[in-house]
Design a binder for these strands. Structure first.
Lengths: 361, 361
DNA sequence: CAGATACATGTTATCGCTATCATCCAAAAG
DNA sequence: CTTTTGGATGATAGCGATAACATGTATCTG
């Protein structure tokens, strides 16, 4: 294409990487036929040589390898996919790649995909369902063989596209009331409830909660709801709720929120935070103000980030096995794809969580 | 009669996308021709209707939109790419997505790509050049329109593939001696030198350095080299070097390393760390041991992560504008791609850095 | 009102690869 | 010595879209 070629030419000129053809025009990147011609075989044989497990004689294979090397040929997988109807990748959409539990999930997916011939294509939404819809469409246009999503909230159109895509869909990190297809997740509400109960068991009575505004982050909202529910069951006050900023709320926002909380309810005994990051911000701010944690105020987070195990005092939190969620999601995906004769996997996998008690409570 | 069959087929298609047809096979997803038939136009017109800026009458456009909706059609971009020679995505390869400066760079890229019609495809290497080579090949097989890399160290084969790919290549976060193509980066060595000089100016004399083993993380090695160089110039001892673990070294490793350092050189005045994460680990460990920071020992990091601004005491570090690197890299990429008549961009952009002095030194 | 101009649409020929079937040949089997 | 077998290879026909050109119609220009 014209545009493409210009760019190509410019670079070739700059790098002198490609050879000039007599008439002065630059060479297009080589195709499989070029390789075939040079190796004295048919294109089909080159295709076979590039695919493991097909019958190509050793001699031919070597000649082809040499031709590929000389030409600097790289297979065009898009063309291959079109023909074979297999694109060789799966899509995963997570809210954020930065400083978040979800990147561990992404690692889990990558690791589980290792050796399956499937590659991960990652997208992130910044916690926006609209952005998610865009991403779903962009991914689907490239025909992934499966798709892994975070959470169970999608736009109606996004949901519809997923339902009609004809590929396995795995929703993670949540337990949607109406799953699209398969699920690997846990109840964020229950996890937070467990934390509240555990701390109540240690004698705490006046709980506060710090999180973002509820609209965007559904998992955050569920944690907050779990907080309220648990306290109501225990007959303890559940109205000390600080909503501070747009999710994901940052360390700095956690710091501001805890100040806010202590102004409104100075006798709060323990502050639970929507994530370890805001909890950390709160923890540092308390120290800055000369408050002793946990003696003057206890603090707990959610997610068991590295920071929770490493800060001082070390922080109580809830571990939700982010990496395992990714692994299991990818596993379920590949099992579904390969479920030709084999049993299809369970539609729903509930992953575990556990409270990690440390020094901050 | 004929019409009947069309409608029937179409309905079967639409419904079968989510269910199974009687014979148990999954329905094929609808193609552009299916849409065209249903809308009573040619495939080409459907293609036009899906592309902005092409002339399709309002009435036709609406009929097509309806057909698309009824069939749940999603454009197959791989097929389109093959024909148009434009895949509509750029590849970026970063060392790590987890808790790192590089995810900010990724954000910068995404943001700068907004509205260009180009999508980001992200891969991460876990700091392994071999993994990088694999990723380069995997990406190139999908024919990106450009590729953004972190750093200037690649395997010979990886480098060769990049040179011959015929697309713009941007190396970032570094100033390679022999760039492949374009560069957006800074000298990690100089940045660390500046930090040393700044702190020496405050009176510190006995500097220690904490980093990972030098083999993998080239940027880490460069920072370390800058550390040594700066001290030599100042005539100060530069032998207090702790290499602890495989990069990227974690918070926990930073904690262990600082202990190690204080055992070997108890009179160290300031510990510089390869990143804010290890610096944070060191900071917390010092507090745990009752050391006052910065009075007993000063600590500085590198990268200006959120944690540096939020921890207590707030941490001195070097800000290197990660987000800006991503933005500028993506900008340079799109400029190069679109350099039809316009000037091609400068081959090398040097990004700035600055020391952020806070309470920990 | 002829010719120019712009828009609306269709037809045809690929894009680069792989599925499929056909062919050839040598080694094994009967 | 014929038949069988299976490995090695080639020829052909798409995969689903778009570029490029062709055609037809409406609107404008002088």
């Amino acid at each position: 294409m014209y545009l493409h070629k210009q760019v190509f030419d410019a670079i070739v000129h700059a790098e002198a990487a490609m050879t000039k053809i007599p008439d002065g025009k630059m060479a297009e990147p080589p195709t499989m036929s070029d390789v075939a011609r040079r190796a004295g075989v048919s294109a089909m044989t080159v295709s076979r040589a590039l695919k493991k497990g097909s019958h190509v004689s050793k001699a031919t294979r070597e000649r082809i390898a040499q031709a590929i090397n000389e030409l600097g040929y790289v297979l065009d997988q898009s063309a291959g996919s079109l023909s074979s109807r297999r694109t060789g990748f799966v899509a995963a959409i997570i809210p954020s790649i930065n400083n978040s539990n979800f990147s561990d999930t992404a690692r889990g997916i990558t690791d589980a995909l290792e050796g399956t011939g499937l590659q991960l294509l990652l997208g992130y939404t910044n916690y926006s369902v609209d952005r998610e819809e865009e991403l779903i469409e962009a991914m689907l246009k490239r025909r992934p063989e499966g798709i892994i999503l975070t959470g169970g909230s999608h736009t109606p159109r996004g949901r519809r596209m997923l339902e009609q895509a004809g590929i396995p869909v795995i929703e993670t990190w949540d337990r949607p009331a109406q799953p699209i297809d398969k699920v690997v997740g846990f109840s964020n509400g229950e996890a937070m409830e467990l934390l509240v109960k555990t701390l109540a068991g240690k004698g705490y009575q006046r709980f506060g909660y710090i999180g973002g505004t509820t609209a965007r982050d559904t998992r955050g909202s569920q944690r907050r709801a779990g907080f309220v529910r648990a306290l109501e069951r225990l007959g303890l006050p559940s109205d000390r709720l600080i909503s501070f900023g747009v999710p994901p709320i940052s360390m700095e926002q956690g710091a501001q929120a805890v100040v806010n909380m202590l102004e409104r309810w100075p006798d709060t005994q323990v502050a639970l935070c929507v994530s370890d990051l805001s909890a950390f911000g709160a923890l540092m701010e308390c120290q800055r103000r000369g408050l002793k944690v946990p003696d003057d105020i206890a603090i707990a987070g959610f997610g068991d980030y590295e920071i929770a195990a490493c800060c001082h005092p070390r922080m109580t939190t809830v571990n939700v096995d982010c990496y395992g969620i990714g692994r299991q999601a990818a596993l379920k995906l590949t099992q579904t794809i390969q479920a030709v004769s084999a049993e299809p996997p369970e539609p729903i996998t509930v992953t575990g969580f556990r409270v990690v008690e440390r020094e901050s409570t």
